[in-house]
Amino acid sequence: MSHSATKVRRAVAVLALTVTAAVLAGCGAASSPSTGAAPNADRAAAAEGVSPDVNLDQCGKPARTVKHDLGTTTISGSPAKVVALEYSFVDALVAVGMSPVGVADDGQPERIIPALRDKVGEYKSVGLRATPNIQVITALKPDLIVADSGRHKAIYAQLSKIAPTIAFASLNGNYQQVLDSEMSTAIALDKCDEMKTRLTEHAKVMADLKAKAPADESRTALFVRASDKGFTGFPAKAYTPGVLEVIGIRSPLPDDSGEASVSLTLETLVATKPDVMFIAPNEGPTLRDTWAKSPLWREIPAVKNNTTFDVDPNEWSRSRGLIAAEVVAQEAVELLYGK
């Protein structure tokens, strides 16, 4: 083998490595999962707070065609047995006075928040939200399945063989998307009027809570999930900050990054300068315990002002629903302004 041939090969290999590196660097800038609709919906829509994309004209029809993130699905009759593959959809069922026959509850029923638990009653766990057990879902013989459009995209075809399946953004959904998906779910359930009433009530609850906050509230509040490996901050367009914004509390994280969440280091956290921090810690020791020992931690305004609050990740982060939003807003108002 000649020397030059070896050189050429080496050049090709180096080129390949460089391309890989460039692709990596590129995706740093390019990856921007869009989280959809603007937070301010058309208030004039027939269902309060719901964006015009929701096809309300299907309400009350015997066979309703529901637009959802993975297509359109026609549902006839009034589904009675419903399987919810995310907590958001349990929220939607409870909001219209129903309860699911099966829930992907991660095998941890305590993750269904107290505000929903009693109304949910008996159900069958269908396993992890990420990998719901298709066998168990089939055995439940559901009339409708509500799935997450991200997590369950790959098994959507299989779910559709079991029962009509509608899919919405829950995991990556923002507040507006959650309200829309609750309404769309209600259309599928033939419970339009119930949901419209509930949405009006919801708007009133949120307005009352907003009234409890001073109109000139200028403090920013950061919502973070703390685990042993990371500290994840949620920018304004994510679900929880979206709920807080409704009652007049802004997020200190800039919204121009387009990211659904931001991984924070202690340094970036300090630079963010949150006036208030709502921390939803995972069980066991978290990074916060380590960071709290650092002098930098005490530089954070929220720590200095003693306005750092621990909140329940089930209520503040996992549930992502209409009822859960009221729970979050209520607790935020209580923590910040007293009862």
């Binding site: 990596l24 299989q158 990556n172 994840t232």
Partner: peptide, 30 residues
């Protein structure tokens, strides 16, 4: 080197990780 790339992608996209991790672990689910 590829493992490092995978880690980088995981750190960049914390919200989408769970679905991707299941594929990465290797499973016949679904």
């Amino acid at each position: 080197a590829f493992e490092a790339g995978i880690r980088f992608l995981l750190v960049r996209n914390p919200l989408d990780v769970s679905a991707a991790l299941i594929w990465l672990t290797g499973s016949l689910f679904g």
